[in-house]
Design a protein around this nucleic acid. Structure first.
Length: 300
RNA sequence: GGUCGGAUGGCCGAGAGGCGAGGCAAGGGACUGCAAAUCCCUCUACACGGGUUCAAAUCCCGUUCCGACCU
């Protein structure tokens, strides 16, 4: 019986390494669930494992997008699921590793993403610019009060998406929403790596310093030539955004580096909040023998 | 020794008698088509001691510290 194992957790907790260990032990292939490692050329700044470091284990969904293309959950969900069935069909287990909570949830749970329509969306965006965030929110309150309750009035991005879905499907946004416990892979085992804040902070600092030494700035310069500023997703990535700002003269190199560290810390916090909601995750702390703990659980 | 100017929350920084500016950091949280994104909440400070006043971070006196200048 082929398994689905998930390794999640905050950035810099050592997910990639553990995933390799597990894959090696149980005979699995690895699937990336990190929204930024999807991009070709974003290597140093995303701490992507080099091919030589992958121990011959197949890694999927790495380097599948151009930096000028946008990534979306719906697309990812589709790709990831077909990769999983492909791996399973060949008789291997699948280890999903990554820090993008929404992407992982999209694979595991029965999340259905109604279509998107660029025209509808840009119209809504225009309305927002013209009449303000409140206008959009009030419209949402009318069309789907339940959704308005759970979406913050100032979060224009999410308000627009809800309105878009309503317009396209003709049904309230909430109608498409969660049916708890509708897991696509009921036997999937999720492991979350945790670390105390102080250690994590140190690891992040070290990691960012190392990225700089390895030529992070050059990497971004190359991506500028490849059109990273044309896309919306890739250029927002931690570190990339800051180096881009530096190139535009808004930050000194030192500031860019420090900002990257700070932003990474904040990101780690958001990741922990996200993952902490999922009761299915088995948390593994640094002081535990991580690999053994996880393997025991898998084999039980 | 003298004169003048400062002293505000972890940091930056406004306010110049009467609802605790604001920003950053930190912490907590939300989140089903940009998610390394987007958004929300919290953090009761005015160097110290007196005084004036119904009311003082804001005015007065003194003390301490910092800075500039003078002798």
């Amino acid at each position: 019986m082929s398994k689905v194992i998930v390794i999640c957790g905050a950035t810099a907790t050592g997910k990639s390494e553990i995933a390799l260990d597990i894959a090696e032990h149980i005979g699995a292939e690895i699937i990336n669930a990190d929204s930024m490692q999807l991009y070709r050329g974003m290597d140093i700044g995303t701490a992507k494992l080099k091919v030589a470091e992958r121990r011959g284990i197949p890694h999927h969904l790495l380097d599948v997008l151009d930096v000028s293309e946008d990534s979306t959950v719906a697309w990812f969900q589709d790709r990831a699921r077909s990769v999983i069935s492909d791996i399973h069909n060949r008789g291997f287990h699948a280890v999903i590793v990554g820090g993008t909570g929404l992407y992982i949830k999209a694979i595991l749970d029965d999340l259905n993403f109604p279509d998107t329509n660029p025209e509808v969306r840009s119209n809504l965006e225009k309305l927002g610019e013209e009449f303000g965030a409140n206008f959009l929110f009030e419209r949402l309150q009318e069309l789907d009060p339940a959704a308005a309750l759970s979406i913050d009035r100032a979060n224009t991005r999410r308000v627009i998406r809800a309105l878009e879905v309503i317009e396209i499907t003709g049904k309230p946004f909430t109608a498409n929403l969660p049916r708890e416990d509708s897991s696509r892979y009921p036997d999937a085992l999720q492991f979350g790596l945790v670390m105390d804040r102080e250690s994590l902070r140190e690891r992040i600092n070290l990691r960012v310093d190392r990225m700089w030494e390895e030529g992070f700035v050059d990497e971004v310069d190359q991506l500028i030539n490849l059109g990273i500023t044309r896309g919306t997703t890739a250029q927002r990535a931690l570190g990339y955004a800051q180096i881009l700002q530096m190139r535009q003269g808004f930050l000194t190199e030192d500031e860019a580096k420090e900002e990257t560290k700070r932003a990474s810390r904040q990101y780690a916090r958001r990741q922990e909040t996200w993952f902490s909601r999922d009761q299915r995750i088995h948390w593994v702390a640094t002081h535990q023998p991580r690999l053994e703990t996880i393997l025991t659980k898998i084999n039980s």
